[in-house]
Amino acid sequence: MREKPVRTFWPWLLIAVVVVYAGLLLLAPLVAVISGAFEDGIQPVLEAITAAEALLSLRLTFFLAITASVINAILGLIVAWVLVRHRFPGKWFFNALVDLPFVVSPVIVGYVMIVLFGRTGWLQNFPIQLAFSLPGMLVVTVFVSLPFVIREVMPVLASLTREQEEAAFTLGASSWMTFYRIVFPAIRHGIIYGIVLTLARALGEFGAVAVIGGGVQGVTETATIYIYRSLHDRNDIGAYSMAITLGVISVGILVVMNWLRRDPSEKGSQHVDPTE
């Protein structure tokens, strides 16, 4: 006996909420930005995006995002491994600490860095100049995007039974070989997804890099700082064009990563021999 679903207005209300929510929050700004950019045709957009300062800011943003992703992929993997596989006193504390970048405002992150590494900071004699410099911007970018790889990899790693590795050991595989051949393939989706999120986060970062970098045009000005400054300078087309560029790049990364994430083992349907 199957009950006939009762039609009420509730589902429609929920659908309406979704449409309005998505429409207002996602679509409306998108339309505004695109129409704003192309107000005077495509020529000003092309000019705005190929302006020397715009290109420099994009290059800096890429450098920061990609370098931070590589660093966080490697370090994140190690941290996830240690947090999942090892027991040590204060582990819960470090586990909670990983989420810190999610809850601390990036502006505060930048400011704390200046307090620490600035001219009168506690660590002012640090061998690398971090305050108002490129390395400092990289450090804050790494910091704000730190949790993604860790949080994506940890559950996959935890679900991976120790026995798979032990099976490899009994077959003569070294620890490194076991990691490379057994563990890594199993967690690579987590790593890739973590990298995508890290890239997206790093591309969009504003507050922390603005504070620590000082926003010097052509030197420490990232694409987002460029957008902010362009709005300030009444260069709306420049700001909108850069916003669209960043958006297109982000979507492009998502598409590429989705293509990478496809797993050949997921292509075929589940097929179990009926003779068993």
Binding site: Q164, T170, P185
Partner: peptide, 17 residues
């Protein structure tokens, strides 16, 4: 690695990939 044994685990632990 050096004991020259074969081991079959209860849940088989096949390499899923």
């Amino acid at each position: 690695q050096k004991r020259g044994i074969g081991f079959v685990f209860q849940n088989y632990s096949l390499f899923q990939h």
